[in-house]
Amino acid sequence: MSDILQKSDTQEIVVDEIFPHAPEKLWKTLASGELMGRWLMVPTGFEPVKGTQFTFQTTPAGAWDGRIRCEVLEAIPNECLVFAWKGGDEGNSGYGSKLDTMVSLTLSPAEGGTRLRLVHSGFVTPRNDSAFASMSNGWKGVIRNVGTIAGEPE
């Protein structure tokens, strides 16, 4: 069988919003561990510096301890934050199945403000269908939270 036929299909989540804020306001919200704890989950060890490894803790399932292991792959102030997002366990199916994905948050100028585009890619079908379904809805709320926090007075 060829390598192409052996590869699994993957899916990605895309959320694209325009906020009436300067890129600097959105970046501050994205790149602060304290603020990240308000719009996503409280990170342990996060710094917006390439190579930084950090974690999130969520509900464990089966053989998975609930830890999401991340690494900053790219951090360009006022432009983008990209990090690996890995969790789950090979022995789990559904919630808590092995997950090896990437989250990309990109800021760009837009009429009336700044566009924030999130792409969470690498969901393997069918293994990650459960995570893909729940996170598809979850990221929409997360991105709205980023906009709300960025709009708060300093």
Rank of each mutant, 00 (worst) to 15 (best):
Q11A: 14
I18M: 05
G141W: 02
M36W: 08
A63T: 11
D129L: 12
V82C: 11
I68D: 08
P60N: 11
T148L: 13
S93C: 00
L118V: 04
F54T: 13
T58N: 05
M135T: 10
M41K: 13
S104C: 04
G138I: 11
D3A: 08
L26I: 13
W139V: 03
G51I: 12
E24N: 10
D129T: 07
M102V: 08
K28W: 08
G45F: 05
G141A: 02
I149F: 04
T106W: 05
A133H: 09
G141L: 09
D65I: 03
A110P: 09
L105S: 10
Q6E: 02
M102T: 11
V142F: 11
E154A: 13
C70N: 14
I13G: 01
I76S: 15
I68T: 14
M1L: 00
W27F: 01
S2Y: 00
G91F: 04
F54L: 10
G91Q: 11
F132M: 03
E24I: 05
V146P: 03
K7P: 01
D65S: 00
L116S: 03
M36G: 07
F19Q: 07
E12S: 15
C80R: 15
G141R: 00
K86S: 13
V14D: 08
E90M: 08
H120S: 12
T101G: 06
E111T: 15
F56H: 01
R67V: 13
E47P: 01
I4S: 12
V42N: 08
L40S: 08
K50Q: 15
E17G: 00
D89F: 03
V124E: 15
L30H: 05
E79A: 01
G62Y: 07
K28G: 04
L99S: 06
V124N: 01
V124K: 12
M1W: 00
V146M: 07
P23W: 10
V49D: 05
L35P: 02
R117Y: 02
N92S: 03
H21Q: 15
E12M: 15
P43A: 06
W27N: 09
V49T: 15
G113Q: 11
S121D: 11
Q6F: 06
T55M: 02
S93V: 12
R144C: 03
V15G: 04
K140V: 03
L107K: 04
S136E: 11
C70S: 14
V72Y: 02
S121W: 07
T10S: 13
I68P: 08
F19M: 07
T114M: 00
F46S: 11
G45K: 10
W27L: 03
T52C: 06
V142Y: 12
D9R: 08
H21E: 14
A133P: 02
E12N: 04
G37V: 09
V82W: 03
Q57V: 11
T29M: 06
W39N: 02
M102W: 00
R67T: 15
S97M: 05
M102Q: 14
G51A: 13
V14A: 12
S104N: 14
V14I: 15
G122W: 01
S2M: 09
V119C: 10
E34Y: 09
R38G: 04
